[in-house]
Design a protein around this nucleic acid. Structure first.
Lengths: 213, 213
DNA sequence: CGTTCCTTGTGAAAACGTTCACCTGCGGCT
DNA sequence: AGCCGCAGGTGAACGTTTTCACAAGGAACG
C-alpha cells in the first residue's frame, strides 16, 4: 500500500477546513491558487497533494467545492463515525469533552475512564466516568485519547491496544511503544513551548540590533 | 543567521527529556546510540543534530549527561524564564494553568485574560482573570497562549503582537497572520484526530485481510 | 607501547518533499 | 469555429533532511 507523507495529510485537513468555509460562503468552484492563498502553501503544492489521490479538478475551471469536499472527507475517513475512549478525566480530558467540534467531525467519545476514586462515578458531559479497570470491557472502540499523567501513559496505551484500539491521541510527553498497525499522534505542549523558546532565543534582538554582525 | 530545521529543534527537546531522565538515574555518560534508543531516532541523527550546535561528545566515551543537558538548555533558551500571557480562561486555558510542568521548564504564566464577564474577576490558579481590554497594559510579556474560540483568535493574536509578544502558542484551528519576527506554533487537535482517522482508514483490515492485493 | 574496542563527527549518498515549467483541456468571446 | 486565457496535472529540477560509512580520537589492557 502506498504511503503518503504526514505533511500531505495535514494539508488535506487544511484544505478541508478552507472548503468548509468556502462552501458556507456559497462558492461553487475554487482554484488551487485560491485554495493555497488562505494558508501559506503554493498552488503547485495543492495540486500535487490532491493528485496523489485522484484528479478532482477541471482544467480551466478549478475544483468543484462540494465535490472536492466530499472526496477529502472520504480520503480522511471523515465519512463515517469513530468511537473514541477518553482516558483521564482531568483538565485536558474535560477540555476535550467540552469541545463539540470533535463530535461534529465524526469523533464520538463514548466512554471516559480515570483511576482516581474522586473522579470515578462523576458525570462529565453526559458520560459517567468509569474506573480504568473497566476499560477492557468497554467494547468496540477504535481510538483512544490518553490525557493522563505521564507516568501512566504507557500502561494506558497497552490497555487501549489490548482493547483493540488502532489509533491513539497522546497528550503525555512521552513516546509510546505500540505494536505495528497502531497509529499514535502525540500532542506535546511542552515541546511547543520549547520550540518557541528556541525560536525567540535565535531571533533575539532582530529588531533591536541595528549594526554589526 | 543560520536556520535550523524544525525537526532538529523538536528532537533537541526529546534529547533534553531523555537527559533529564538519565540524569535522575545517576548516569554520567551516554552514547548517541543510547540517546537514540529511547525515541525512534537513529544514532547518526542524534550526532548530526548535536553537531549543528557544537562538539559536545568525546570519541570513545559518548556525551557527558550533565554537560550536554546544560548545553541543550542553553540552546533551547531554557536557561532563563519566560513571561507568558494566557488568553482564554476556558477548559484548555485552565488545563494549561493547572499543569505545573511549564513552570518547571521556565515558563511563567503571569497574566490571564478573557472576554467573558462570567470569568473575568474569578481567580484561576492564583491569578485573577482580567478583561481582555487590559491586555495592552500588562507589561513585559514575551509569549502568548491563545486558548480562545477560533473566531477570536486572529484578533487576540494582533493584540498580543501589539503588546510586544514575539512567540504565540495557538490552540485555535486557524492559521494566524503575524508580522515577521513573531513565531507561532499551532496545536490543532482536530487535525490530529483527522490524521489518525486517515491512518486508520488506510490500514483498515491490515490484520484482517489475508490474501490478495 | 601496541592492539583492540568503542564512539564521535562529518563528508557523501540516498531519500524525501517542494517548486518549477510546461502541456493539456476547458469555457468564453468574437 | 477558432482563438485566447485560465487552471489542473505532472515529470523534472531543486532543496532539504536523513542515513550511510568511515576516519580519527580515546580508553583499557596485556
Amino acid at each position: 500500500m502506498k504511503r503518503f507523507s504526514e505533511s500531505t495529510v495535514r494539508r488535506l485537513s487544511h484544505y478541508y477546513r478552507v472548503l468548509e468555509e468556502v462552501h458556507a460562503e456559497g462558492q461553487r468552484m475554487i482554484s488551487s491558487h485560491l485554495l493555497a492563498e488562505r494558508e501559506d502553501i503554493t498552488s503547485a503544492q495543492v495540486r500535487k497533494d490532491l493528485s496523489y489521490f485522484g484528479s478532482f479538478g477541471r482544467r480551466g475551471l478549478g475544483y468543484n467545492v462540494e465535490h472536492l469536499r466530499t472526496e477529502i472527507r472520504a480520503i480522511l475517513g471523515l465519512d463515517r463515525r469513530w468511537r473514541v475512549a477518553l482516558v483521564g478525566a482531568g483538565h485536558i480530558g474535560a477540555a476535550l469533552l467540552a469541545y463539540r467540534g470533535f463530535r461534529d467531525q465524526g469523533f464520538d467519545v463514548v466512554a471516559v475512564f480515570d483511576s482516581s476514586a474522586e473522579r470515578v462515578g462523576k458525570t462529565l458531559d453526559e458520560l459517567v466516568v468509569q474506573d480504568i479497570s473497566k476499560l477492557p470491557e468497554c467494547g468496540d472502540i477504535e481510538m483512544g485519547v490518553i490525557a493522563t499523567p505521564v507516568r501512566a501513559a504507557q500502561e494506558v496505551a497497552d490497555m487501549l491496544v489490548a482493547a483493540g484500539v488502532r489509533g491513539i491521541l497522546n497528550f503525555a510527553p512521552r513516546k509510546l511503544r505500540v505494536p505495528e498497525g497502531v497509529a499514535v499522534r502525540t500532542v506535546d505542549m511542552t515541546m511547543e513551548f520549547e520550540s518557541l523558546s528556541f525560536a525567540l532565543s535565535q531571533t533575539r534582538g532582530k529588531s533591536r540590533r541595528r549594526a554589526g554582525e
